[in-house]
Computed example of a mutant assay.
Amino acid sequence: MHKGKGMKFVGDSRISSERKPNIPKDYSEYPGRTEAFWPNFLLKEWLVGAVFLVGFLCLTLAHPAPLEGVADPTNATYVPLPDWYFLFLYELLKYEFASGPWILFGIIILPGLAFGGLLLAPFLDPGPGRRPNQRPIAVAMMVLGLASTMLLTYESAAHVNWEARAEANKPVPATEINKENPGYAVYEQNCMSCHGESLEGSAAAPSLIGIDHTKEEIMKIAQEGYKTMPAGVFKGTKEELAALAEFIINVNEKAK
């Protein structure tokens, strides 16, 4: 190489010394392909995904999912439900052809065929066109799967009173218990075995936190019982009964 004007230094012979603009290829000769996958098509996909994600996050913030209490395996009255995106499978298992002796058909075979069909859709309909009328098999399978999922989810959610369920199973707020309170000793002797150490409740009795009863009502319930609680559970003096009621009211005032 001669030194002088126009001298160029190239570190790798595979790299062009002249920069060329990134111009996508001309796909007009290929039917069904009108743009480059990178960056044209992929950038559009990212933009659509970003818009959908922002909208989904806004809905999540505007309508948060109701939280329930900690699962209690000893509570036989509690009906567990899956998250909303699995409600359609939960509803599917209510039908006779997918439950009972056909349970394996409902939990394995039928969902496997549905999701397997969606995975095979590009291979079953490999046409080059992008319009729906040019991909009848893939579009029909997608519409059928989407409509089935939405219908089963709606049917499952329509039979659940979500507000009442959330209220009945709401988490018990953490409350600091003053064990030096004279009423706590009375509570420990008469109520702790059923209502728990921190008034959180158990499978045998409900929580005593969040109740709205006066002192007289609590004293009456302790002596005469309430719903499934039998009468005569409390055994103590009137002074101890008053101390117990005041202790429960004090705990609930702190929990507010």
Rank of each mutant, 00 (worst) to 15 (best):
L57Q: 12
P122R: 01
P126E: 09
T77H: 12
G129W: 07
L87M: 14
P101D: 08
C58I: 15
E68P: 00
R130V: 09
I108D: 03
G55A: 15
V172I: 14
L92R: 01
P66K: 06
G117H: 02
L81M: 03
I177C: 03
E96A: 14
P128E: 14
P80A: 13
L59M: 12
K94S: 05
Q134F: 06
F88G: 00
L144Y: 02
N169Y: 10
A157V: 01
P111G: 02
H63D: 09
A76R: 09
D72M: 11
G55D: 14
P64K: 13
R165P: 07
I103P: 03
A147G: 12
S148G: 07
P66F: 00
G127E: 13
E176C: 03
N161M: 06
L119N: 07
E163F: 04
D83Y: 09
I103M: 10
E68H: 01
V139K: 07
A164M: 08
E180Y: 00
P82Y: 10
N75H: 11
R130L: 11
E176F: 06
T153I: 00
A138W: 06
L104K: 05
G69W: 00
T74L: 15
V54M: 12
Y85P: 06
N181Y: 05
A65V: 03
G145E: 04
A174G: 04
I103D: 03
R130I: 11
V172N: 10
L104P: 04
I108Y: 07
L93Y: 05
L120E: 03
E163N: 12
T60K: 15
Y90N: 07
M150G: 14
A121Y: 00
A157L: 04
G55L: 15
A158F: 00
N133V: 11
L151H: 06
F97S: 13
N169M: 04
K94R: 15
E180L: 05
E96G: 15
A147H: 04
L92S: 02
T77N: 14
P173M: 08
L61P: 07
F88T: 00
I107E: 02
S148D: 02
K94V: 03
P173Y: 09
R165F: 05
G106E: 10
P136D: 12
L144S: 13
D72L: 11
N161I: 04
T175A: 13
G100L: 12
G55Y: 11
P132Q: 03
R135T: 08
Y90W: 12
G106V: 10
V70C: 06
